[in-house]
């Protein structure tokens, strides 16, 4: 994947590190296309790909859309996580916390229980409720009479998430334990098994635009992480700029969650890893989060679809691999040579 940093500092060490990760990501995507369980578990030899019709169809109609979606999944959650953490000046927030994840979970469960399990219905319902979750959080935050704007949004997000998760609990209780409940459970654990080109194209435009907005506005994130009055004194429009960036982050998150289900931890952990490796300045931390997130998404999905004969829910893997990587990073690297 070609990756051309647009800032004017040329070949700084950070840019070189980014280039290395970008090359690595490209190699992983290419390798992933060849790895799978056809014709036997392992790698398809390139010469076989040239002659075997079925192999071609598997690689280009099944693996390619799935891998690209996994790439978007990792990039979106990580970019949104980086945006949310910096805007709320809180390293513990995650892109789903404004009611988005629980809203999507509720929407998907609702569709599974009441409207059968058409993939499009589940996706549409998840997307609609993801945005409803955000909308409700936002409206509630405006009506609260407590704290500053950021604190109000966080509190409203927590409350709305709790409401939707109560709804998910109720739906699980009502679901048919033999057919619907397993389906809800799998959705809540996340997975890309059902992704084909139509699903990929249904979210690609939203995700591309959102990620582009976040990437272009990344330096502003540093300013928006300061107090509102300070951001204002630096010529920023804190309210408006925050809304644009949050909107982009949430749109990307809602889009990928609607087709992939709940994928935990990526959006929380990857921005931390990016900041650890590149420093807190979003000029480098955001592109780093995008690349590392993409790498995580593709690798986790590779393991999910190839390790066992059956599909492993990707949410389990992102939590497991993410948490281990997280611990490893914090135990080995310090920032800018400083040990705290």
């Amino acid at each position: 994947m070609a990756f051309r940093p647009s800032w004017s500092w040329g070949a700084t060490p950070a840019n070189r590190k980014l280039a290395v990760i970008a090359v690595l990501l490209g190699a992983v995507v290419a390798m992933s296309l060849l790895i799978g369980r056809y014709p036997s578990p392992g790698i398809i030899a390139p010469d076989r790909l040239a002659t075997d019709d079925l192999a071609q169809r598997i690689v280009f109609n099944l693996r390619l859309p799935r891998i690209l979606t996994a790439l978007m999944l990792g990039m979106s959650l990580s970019a949104a996580g980086a945006v949310f953490q910096q805007i709320f000046a809180n390293p513990l927030v995650d892109p789903g916390f404004l009611g988005v994840s629980q809203g999507a979970a509720f929407g998907a469960s609702l569709a599974i229980v009441f409207w059968g399990s058409s993939a499009w219905l589940v996706q549409g319902s998840a997307a609609i409720f993801a945005f409803s979750g955000l909308g409700l959080s936002y409206v509630m935050a405006r009506r609260m009479r407590f704290g500053g704007s950021v604190l109000r949004l966080i509190l409203a997000g927590i409350a709305i998430s709790a409401l939707f998760s109560a709804g998910v609990g109720a739906l699980k209780y009502m679901a048919d334990p033999l057919s619907q409940l397993p389906e809800i459970t799998f959705w809540l654990l996340g997975g890309l098994a059902s992704i084909t080109w139509p699903q990929f194209w249904s979210i690609a435009p939203v995700v591309s635009i959102s990620v582009f907005v976040v990437y272009r506005m990344r330096w502003r994130l540093n300013i928006l992480s300061l107090d509102d009055s300070t951001a204002f004194s630096l010529g920023a429009a804190p309210g408006r700029e925050r809304a644009v960036l949050l909107g982009a982050g949430v749109a990307a998150t809602a889009a990928v969650v609607s087709v992939c289900g709940m994928v935990g931890w990526l959006g929380l952990i990857v921005p931390h890893i990016a900041r650890r490796l590149f420093g807190a300045d979003a000029r480098h931390a955001v592109p780093a989060a995008l690349l590392i997130g993409g790498l995580f998404g593709v690798l986790c999905d590779d393991v999910a679809r190839t390790l066992l004969a059956g599909e492993i829910p990707i949410g389990i893997l992102t939590s497991l691999i993410g948490a281990l990587f997280f611990l490893a990073i914090f135990m080995t690297y310090g920032h800018s040579g400083e040990q705290r």
Partner: peptide
């Protein structure tokens, strides 16, 4: 706003950030 930002600067009493920006950044 931008013109105000070029005309006046504020040194707040305290400013907290959880992120470890470098002094230069």
């Amino acid at each position: 706003r931008r013109l105000l930002g070029q005309s006046m600067a504020l040194v707040p009493q305290v400013e907290r950030t959880p992120f470890d920006y470098s002094v230069l950044d």
